[in-house]
Design a binder for these strands. Structure first.
Length: 500
RNA sequence: GGCGGCGUAGCUCAGUCGGCAAGAGCGCACGGCUCAUAAUCGUGAGGUCGCGGGUUCGAACCCCGCCGCCGCUACCA
């Protein structure tokens, strides 16, 4: 059995989950479900990132401990994922003992190999902002917000010798041209490496909400350096080496473009330093834009995914979120567009196709479904949809996979229109048309199940294939001509409602 | 400033190695149908493929220039 591991970033708990978080997580969920359908061993990891100065400060403002704050926000992410039908295999929190244990082991390994050394960090600090700046952010050497001089601050920190990995990273990129997708992000990362890498300060001594450096208890790790390690923590780096070796490095990290550098430069170098292979692939996606702007807390255009689930329904939301945009570039996200696609794709094309087929089975076949004919004008369309959907699911292109399935649905609606089974006398001709249409519903339901698991199961149940998804085989069961017929249809309300 | 990307029908976008008459979905218009969730089917609109040059038998795809937008350019979750 092949193994497949997909991760989301671990989300920083200074913000409640919004549609942007849901976007990444849903893509990972769909990919995980697709691979489960392929009967691969699947491990889908998500979680929350809980250390760092910002969390400590936020907790202080609220008058609670950082742990209390992270407990409550982490819970909100878990709740949100439950409500979005996210079926993860593990939810990691960086404050858990297993992570701290792994960070200790992983960083100790890097330290022992000589890639972490003590040095002096110099930064620019604005007393009014209470935060650090880098040279390029300053305006005339002054704090850009308060227009006053910044102070030079020094701190003895431990540095990760990123500079020593330049050549190895370049070689790795050269050997793995598909390491990062899309290609533009690969090129950005590559040119960053080529421009020369500096060592990075990876510990802090000015606050203590972090993981203590095992060889120097006066310091804690900088949150990013430690957070990346979550991926190997959860796979069993320290707790289950057998499983770790099975799943790593065959792992895909899905991330938003704002955290490309950490994942594409730091993380592979850290892996090399610790003596393991870098992950197999990093998929970088763009942002959902609302009126051309990134969805964020500060621009007040943040959308709660749970609200959209309430409005459209769970599977509808899942479909609409991934259908709207290819995984990669930024894309516009608007309520009007969601509504339009809900009505046309879901209610009209798919939901109504199911309704009309079952209505005719009811009136012409006494509610007992006919079986599919082995030869059909729809067969080529179905074969094409299966082939194309498979390829696109495998290539992390859900929007394209869905498009190919919808082409089949449209062809089937046209097929019904041409043959008008509602007009014919009960008999072979009517049975054939309906059997073929039921076969399309069977195949389409399987293909959409990663995105719409509940609706897919419901479609199958209504045509008599209860629990069909539990042991369907993608390699054996998607060929044309396998719908057996002979089932009594289950009549029910429309699958998807139109929204006005 | 340096490196890179984008600009294709009203909207959202496809267009692999340059080549059959520039595509899809939605929206819109007209027509058909009435089994179905006022769903569906057919047809259509006529987009200088950002602008100007060039290479080529032939370019949306290659080269040069210009305009507009955007990304990366280190320790910001």
């Amino acid at each position: 059995m092949k193994s497949f591991c997909v991760t989301t970033p671990i989300y920083y708990v200074n913000d409640a989950p919004h549609v942007g978080h849901a976007y990444t997580t849903l893509h990972a969920d769909i990919t995980a479900r697709w691979n489960r359908l392929k009967r691969n061993e699947v491990f889908f990891l998500t979680g929350t990132d809980e250390h760092g100065l910002k969390i400590a400060e936020a907790a202080e403002k609220l008058g609670i401990s950082p742990q209390e704050l992270t407990d409550s926000t982490s819970r909100r992410f878990k709740d949100a994922w439950d409500q979005l039908g996210i079926k993860y295999d593990d939810f990691i929190r960086t404050t858990e003992p297993r992570h701290i244990e792994t960070v200790n082991a992983f960083t100790q390994k890097i330290y022992d190999a000589g890639y972490i050394v003590k040095d002096t960090w110099e930064g620019l600090y604005c007393i009014s902002c209470e935060s650090n700046y880098i040279e390029s952010e300053l305006e005339n050497g002054m704090c850009p917000i308060h227009k006053r001089p910044v102070e030079k601050v020094k701190e003895d920190n431990y540095f990760f010798k990123l500079s020593q990995f330049e050549d190895r990273l370049l070689k790795f990129y050269e050997d793995n041209p598909k390491f990062i997708e899309p290609e533009t992000k690969f090129n950005e990362a590559l040119s960053f490496i080529k421009s020369g890498l500096k060592d990075i300060s990876v510990t802090r001594s000015s606050f203590d909400w972090g993981i203590t450096v095992p060889w120097d208890h006066s310091q804690v790790f900088y949150v990013w350096f430690e957070a990346l390690i979550n991926y190997v923590t959860a796979l069993g780096y320290t707790s289950d080496p057998d499983r770790f070796n099975r799943l790593w490095p065959n792992t895909v990290h899905m991330i938003g473009k704002e955290i490309t550098r950490f994942h594409c430069i730091w993380w592979p170098a850290m892996c090399m330093a610790a003596g393991i292979n870098p992950p197999s692939k990093i998929l970088v996606h763009g942002w959902l834009l609302v009126g051309g702007e990134k969805m964020s807390k500060t621009s007040l255009n943040k959308i709660d995914p749970v609200d959209l689930v309430d409005e459209f329904g769970l599977d509808q939301f899942r479909y609409l979120l991934v259908k709207g945009s290819p995984f990669g570039p930024d894309s516009e996200f608007s309520y009007e567009e969601l509504k339009r696609r809900n009505n046309s794709d879901l209610a009209n094309n798919l939901g109504n196709l199911l309704s009309r087929v079952l209505a005719v089975v009811n009136s012409k076949c006494d509610s007992i479904t006919p079986k599919v004919d082995t030869d059909s004008i729809l067969k080529p369309a179905a074969d094409l949809a299966v082939e194309s959907a498979k390829e696109n699911w495998d290539n992390f292109s859900p929007a394209n996979a869905l498009e190919s399935i919808w082409n089949l649905l449209r062809a089937t609606n046209a097929y019904l229109e041409t043959n008008e089974p509602w007009k014919g006398e009960p008999g072979d001709k009517v049975n054939k048309v309906l059997g073929d249409s039921l076969e399309v519903l069977r195949i389409a339901a399987v293909l959409i199940s990663p995105v719409m698991p509940t609706s897919a199961a419901e479609i199958l149940t209504r045509i008599g294939l209860t629990n069909y998804l539990d042991d369907v085989s993608l390699s054996d069961d998607l060929g044309w001509g396998q719908y057996p017929g002979g089932f009594e249809i289950k009549k029910d309300a429309p699958l998807f409602s139109r929204i006005k």
